[in-house]
Structure formats: C-alpha cells, structure tokens
Design a protein around this nucleic acid. Structure first.
Lengths: 192, 192, 192, 192
DNA sequence: CATGAATGAGTGTTCATTCAT
DNA sequence: AATGAATGAACACTCATTCAT
C-alpha cells in the first residue's frame, strides 16, 4: 500500500497547529502550520480536507484529551466509597491541572470553541466527551440548590467558574492551588 | 487621522458593524460594514484609522453602554437605604435585561472580547467602565466567602455566571426571569 | 463620483487578454493579463467579476466586432439593387478580411467558442450579433438546394467552410484573394 | 519511460480518459482518469510520461479509429467497379455513422484537436491516418470545381461540412440519415 | 470631506509529477 | 511494476488601505 498515511505526521500537524494558533490566532496560514510540522503545504491536505476540517478535528482531539484527563481516576461503578463532593473535587482538580499543564492546548481549545467553523456535529461530539461526568453531576445537582434549573444551565455555570479559575491559576502560578480550591468551593456552593 | 464631520455617520458605522459582525463574524469585510452604514468604503477610514481601530472603539462603546445600563438606578452615595444584596440584584437584573434586550450587541461584545486585536488599552478602559460597581462589589466580597480571593478572580467568576445566565435566558425566553433569579442566587452564593 | 471606471482600462484588459490568450491559451493567469494591461492584478476584478466573466465579455465583444465588420455596407432595406449573391459575397468578403486583418482576434474567438465556460446566454447573444445576416441567408437558402435543411445546419456548414477558408488565406497570404473567392464559390454551390 | 506490462491497463486508461474528458473537459485531473481506469494515480505515469503525452496518444488513437472506420470497405486497388461518387459516399457514410455511434469519442477528438498541447508530430500523424482517402479525394478534386485549390483547402472544407453534419445528426437523431445525405450532397457539390 | 476605483500582498486549495515502500 | 503519499509551484480571488477626483 505504498507509503501509508503516517499517524506521526498527523500528530505533527496537530501539534504544529496548536503552536501556530497560539502565536497567530485562527487566521494563521495553513502553509505556516505545514512548515511548522515539517511537511509541504500540499501534504497538509492529504491529512485534512480543509482548514476547517483540521480545526474541527483539532478541537475534538483537545476536548477529548481534556475530558480524559479530567475523568482520570473517577470510579465508574456504584461501589465507590468516595462522596460526590470528593469525586467532584477529583474531576475539578484534574481539569484545572490539565489546563495549567497545557496552557497552549487550553488556549487553542478556547479559541476554537468560539470559532465560526466548528460544525454542530463537532460540538455535539465534544459534549459527549464529557459524558462520563454526566451521572455524577446529575446526582450532585439533584441534591443542591439548582435542582430546578436545567442541566445545561448548571454545566454552563460550572464552565464559567472553571474558566475563571484556570485564568487565575495561570496569572498567579504561586497561588495556583489556592485558586484551584477557591474555585471549587465557589462552584460547590452553587450546585452542591 | 479621523476628524469626523458627522457624529451620525460614526454611529451609523457602529450600528452597521454590529449587524454585520452578527451575521458574518469578525472577518466581515469593511466594505460590507460601510455599505450597511450607507457610506462609501473609503469613508469608513476617515472615521476609523483601521479595521482594528473600529473594533476597539466598538468594543468600548458596547461595553460602556452595557455598564451604564447595569448601573442605572444605583445610588452612588453611602446614604442609600438599600442593602448590598438589593443593590447587587438591581445591577444584576439591569445587566441581564440589557443583554436580553440587545442580543446582537451582547453577541458582538462577546466576539470582540476574545478577539486578537483588542489592545491592552482597550481592555483596560473596558474594565474601568465597570468602576461604578467596584465599591459595591468590594463591600460584598469583603463580607463573603471569597474575602481572601483577588478581586479580579471574583469579577471573572461573576462574569462567567453572568454569561451562562444570559445564554439561558436567551435559550428559554419564557423562563427568562426564573433563570435571571437563579443566576443571581448562584452568584450570591459564591460571593455574598 | 471619484475616479470613474475607465473605459480605456476595460479596453486595455480586453486587448491584453487577447494577446495573452494567443500566446498562452485560455489557461493564462489573470495576473499576466493584468500586467499586460498595465494594471494591478486586483484591478482586473473591478472590471470583471471572474475570469470566466472576462472571457464571456471578450467573446461577445469579438463576435460583435466580427459581425459588424461582416455586415458593413449591407443594405438593410428591400430597395437594394444588389442580387442576393452579390450581397452574400460582400458579407463573405468582409468576414474573411476581418479575420485576415485581425488573426489574433479570430484565433481567440475560436478558442473561446469551444470553451467550457461560455454561458448559454453568451452564446445566445453571440448568435444575435449575426441577426442582420439572417434575412439574407434565409432568402438564399429558400431558393437553393438546401431549402429543406434546417437553418442551423446551413449556418453550421457555412461556418465550416468559412473557417477553412480563413485558415488557408492565412496559410498562403499571397493567394488570399483567390482562396477567398474559392471559398465563396464553394459555399455558394452548397446553398445558393 | 513507459514499458507497459499490460496492454489492458493502457486501454483502460484511454477509455477512462475519454469518459472523464467528456464529463469534465481537458482540465480533468489525471487522478480522476486513473480512478476511473481502476488504477492508482501514480500508475498512470508508467504508461504515459505526462498528461500531454496521454492526450497526444489518445488523439492519435481516436483519429486512427475514426479513419479505419471511415475507410472500411473501400477498395484499395484500381480495379474497383464503383464510381468515385459511390466510393466517396461510402467513406462519408462510414464517417458520419462512426461519429454517431461513438459520440463521446468524437467529442473528445474535437476537444483534443484544438488543444494547445497537441504536438505538430501528433497532428502530422493524425493526417496520415487519412492517407487511404488521399488517392480517391485527389481523383475527385481533379475533376471538380476545386481542381485549382490546394488539397489541404479541400480537406479542410470537407472537414468543416462533416463537422456540421455530425452535429446535426446528433441534434436530430430521427432525421439523421436525411442530414447525412444532405451533408454529402453539399460536400459533393463543392468538390465533386 | 465623500467617493469608489486602484493597489498588491496574502491565502486556501489543486494537481501534475515524483518517489518511498 | 503498482501504489498512493509527498511535493511545491501555481492561481483565482479577497480585502484592508490608499489616493485621485
């Protein structure tokens, strides 16, 4: 089958896109991304049909990575001893630290999230990446002050608090853990 | 440089820019904005040096308008009889309803806020528009659970909750007042 | 009204397009046409929406010019003393000599005629340019051996003979008049 | 260079090229031709050095096929009983019907004939394919009204009439035979 | 100051051809 | 020889900005 499409190259493009978007925004030329990835400009299009396609896939990949990191260590079964609050804190902490550890990825994710050319399908798939959290969050909400609010509203607020927390952890790295905890407390006061 | 003869024309451009950005995003051509404003494409540049300049000024104008609307009816002196919570709710309610009444302006504001070409100066000035709230917010925070967190963090979280609330008021207009109240309660639980 | 769109520039583009197409064919870059016309590449698109648009207009212009030249001196009224044959020869002679005098225009016309991006509307309009000939040709056909063939067939054959004649006039310029006459005789034997 | 292993593959490419050119014109991608032929895009270039090479060979092949079909049944020796007119009509009829039977091949031939990248050598060879007709045509011309015109001129005119006839046979299939005859009559009136 | 034509750098994408497998 | 990924030149068209009128 001749030279097979290389997973390495695909990843290199993703990595290059992330860096270039951080530096230049979403309007960065595809040619620059290609160069950064060490391939020819034409080659980019054997891996992604269009620039928008690349962006959609990049969004999904980053979102999925973030979700996986956030959900790490979360017991899926019912037999867990941990309280909801403890579980929630685990997720929150994972989330915040992933964002702190990969500020570029998080920045690009934020830009892509508001980009015009994210497909509805992509957004849909992005939400699903967080599905592992759904049950837990549902249980928490049901017993808290927002029990009557729509789930989407709760999620949106949680996201808002999370974004703010991440920003401040980045702004004051020395007090990152403090902010992480403060953000969680705030969030918990809302829904827990 | 711009030495506008007509304030009307400047306003027309601002209004046109808002509409066009809603429809096409920030990459909308200046020529389209000019046409929508009923002027020639060249004329736009006698009112704004560059496209980025227009965007910066538009951002400031919208942000200021939002701030003015939010702060309406807020007693500036210390002699007010209203409690902090009551004052805060007034601001919150004003804010939410401005956003509901002018969804286009709010949408554009949101896009501009994350745009690469907002200058630091613009962002700075944008914050100042909210200065009228500073004292009140300071007082509230000082007595609440986030008394040890930096002010910016509190503001950021409040913004996050506000954005989520606005979105849901728009999504379910019939239950807008409910969501407005729920959003406020959430916010108050965090800082109040 | 600021600098008005200049007819001179438009003509310069048409002329440049003709030359460039002769040299490079229809796949010639628009940038080259622009350069040849002494304008910037962007300017070309203020006069023509697309490359195809330019080609359509060029086709029409050349076809019209050819038609005008061919019909020159043809009496339109019924009072003409000239026989049909004489009138027909006049047209034929005009036609052949226009093609001989402007070989580039004729060559470009031939290329455009078979181009994929000639609009049906353009072809339609192109036919109309020859309308002045319709009545005469109709009369000639009605009295000749092809009286029962569709008019379009007659026209097509006439065109075929004309093309062959033009080619040979160009190939042997010294005997151009001879070939012109021979071509006419051939044509006349078919339809006259 | 091409050292084809399989004549079948070569033919498949030729066939595919014909179909694709009909659908998309000469600017059709080689990759599409390859896919249509059931081979990889790279393989195409082991059979043909360049796209232009493929087109030249395709032209020759089609032209030769058309010539073979046209000359079928034509007695080569001098002993034939048939008159020149009868022989000529046989050729004409063969020609017209080949074009009617293989409209795609004929359409592609027409496109290639005016293509920029037909080499002089190819055109030369194309003419030779018709050599079998030369003697007959020569004899006809010598006794007809075009006896003084160059042979090439006669051929060109005959081609022109033929093209027109083919077009009309295709346009009105019901009256194809009529047009075939009418076309021949016209042609014969010119040279016979 | 208003107009809108002029400018030309910039960009996503295509595609003939090459070459590693 | 066959495959199909890699290459990179090419190109139509856009658009912020300038400038002649």
């Amino acid at each position: 089958m001749a030279r097979p499409k290389s997973e390495d190259r695909r990843n290199a493009i993703m990595r290059a896109a992330t860096q270039v978007i951080v530096a230049q925004g979403l309007s960065a030329p595809t040619a620059l991304i290609a160069r950064e990835a060490g391939i020819s400009n034409g080659s980019l299009f054997t891996y992604f049909d269009t620039k928008a396609d690349l962006f959609n896939q990049l969004y999904l990949e980053l979102k999925t990575e973030m979700a996986m990191a956030s959900l790490a260590g979360l017991a899926v079964g019912a037999g867990s001893e941990a309280t909801s609050r403890e579980q929630m804190f685990l997720v929150w902490s994972n989330w915040m630290h992933w964002a702190s550890d990969y500020p570029q990825k998080r920045a690009v994710l934020a830009q892509l999230a508001v980009s015009e050319d994210m497909t509805p399908a992509t957004r849909q798939a992005g939400h699903q990446a967080m599905d592992g959290l759904a049950g837990l969050l549902e249980r928490v909400r049901a017993g808290g002050p927002m029990r009557d609010a729509p789930m989407g509203f709760v999620v949106a607020i949680m996201n808002g608090v999370a974004e703010a927390t991440i920003d401040f952890m980045a702004q004051e790295p020395d007090r990152a853990e403090l902010h992480c905890q403060a953000g969680f407390d705030a969030m918990w006061r809302i829904i827990g």
